[in-house]
Computed example of a mutant assay.
Amino acid sequence: MENLREKFKLRLAENNYKLTRQREIILETILENKQWHFTAEELFSEVRKKEKEIGMATIYRTLELMSKLDILNVLEFNDDSRKYELYLKESHHHHLICKNCGKLIEFNDQDIDYFESELEEKYNFKITEHKLRFYGYCEKCSQEIN
């Protein structure tokens, strides 16, 4: 967790931003919930438990900044909603997304990594990133639909 805090401080400094108290509280909240996929509203709710003075506009600005500085990944969905997650290079993963309830399930698959290597070789193309999402219905929603 300390590495991520230092990474954020360094990225801010490199881009001429300051680590304000509000940004620090927002970052702490995100780091406390490392495996969390969250909306701006969910983050706001958690941050308000610590600091009542932080407003929604500050949350949106900070999320935008953290995304720009590669601290957060933005997960955009077909319905124009957004969720955020920490950007951790060492934990590349993909998502299964329920179209009914919005549940997110992370997964890793070595076959996909192998497929990526095959694409690079076949097309003489260096892949620097990819985002893979599968949409469908989680177990609970599948049972409700049928």
Rank of each mutant, 00 (worst) to 15 (best):
Arg21Thr: 13
Ile30Glu: 04
Arg133Cys: 11
Ile97Arg: 06
Thr128Ile: 11
Phe107Asn: 09
Glu129Trp: 00
Ile25Asn: 09
Ile112Lys: 00
Phe134Val: 12
Gln22Ser: 15
Tyr87Thr: 10
Leu65Arg: 00
Gln22Met: 13
Glu51Cys: 10
Ile97Trp: 00
Phe125Pro: 02
Glu85Asp: 04
Glu32Gln: 08
Glu46His: 15
Asn16Gly: 08
Ala40Ile: 03
Phe77His: 01
Ala13Thr: 06
Lys50Phe: 02
Asn124Gln: 13
Arg133Ser: 14
Tyr87Asn: 14
Glu24Ala: 07
Ile30Trp: 01
Glu24Asn: 10
Glu24Met: 05
Thr128Tyr: 08
Cys98Gly: 13
Lys131Leu: 14
Phe44Val: 04
Val74Gly: 03
Glu116Val: 12
Phe115Lys: 05
Arg48Met: 15
Lys122Met: 12
Ile25Thr: 12
Ile112Asp: 01
Glu28Tyr: 01
Gly55Asp: 15
Lys18Pro: 08
Leu86Arg: 15
Tyr135Ser: 14
Thr29Gly: 12
Glu51Leu: 10
Ile105Gln: 14
Glu106Tyr: 02
Glu76Gln: 13
Ile25Leu: 02
Asp70Ser: 13
Glu139Pro: 05
Arg11Met: 11
Glu28Arg: 10
Glu14Asn: 09
Ile97Thr: 04
Ile25Cys: 03
Glu76Asp: 09
Lys18His: 10
Glu120Asp: 03
Phe77Trp: 04
Ile105Gly: 09
Ile97Val: 13
Leu63Lys: 01
Asn100Met: 08
Ile112Leu: 07
Leu132Asp: 00
Leu65Asn: 01
Leu63Asn: 00
Glu24Asp: 13
His130Cys: 03
Glu121Pro: 02
Leu63Val: 02
Leu12Arg: 01
Glu24Val: 02
Lys52Ser: 04
Arg61Cys: 06
Leu43Asp: 08
Asn73Ile: 06
Ser91Asp: 15
Glu76Cys: 08
Thr29Lys: 13
Leu72His: 07
Glu121Lys: 15
Ile71Tyr: 09
Ser91Glu: 15
Asp111Arg: 07
Ile127Met: 09
Ser45Met: 07
Ile59Asp: 01
Met66Glu: 00
His37Leu: 10
Lys9Asp: 10
Arg48Ala: 14
Phe115Gln: 06
Leu75Phe: 11
Ala40Phe: 01
Val74Thr: 09
His94Pro: 04
Gly55His: 14
Leu104Ser: 11
Val47Thr: 04
Glu76Lys: 12
Asn124Cys: 08
Glu76Ser: 11
Glu41Val: 12
His95Cys: 03
Glu85Leu: 02
Arg133Asn: 15
Asn108Trp: 04
Thr58Lys: 05
Tyr123Gln: 11
Arg61Asn: 13
Lys18Ser: 12
Glu120Thr: 05
Ile71Asp: 03
Ile105Asn: 13
Asp79Glu: 14
His94Trp: 04
Thr20Ser: 02
Thr29Leu: 10
Gly102Cys: 01
Cys138Arg: 02
Glu42Leu: 09
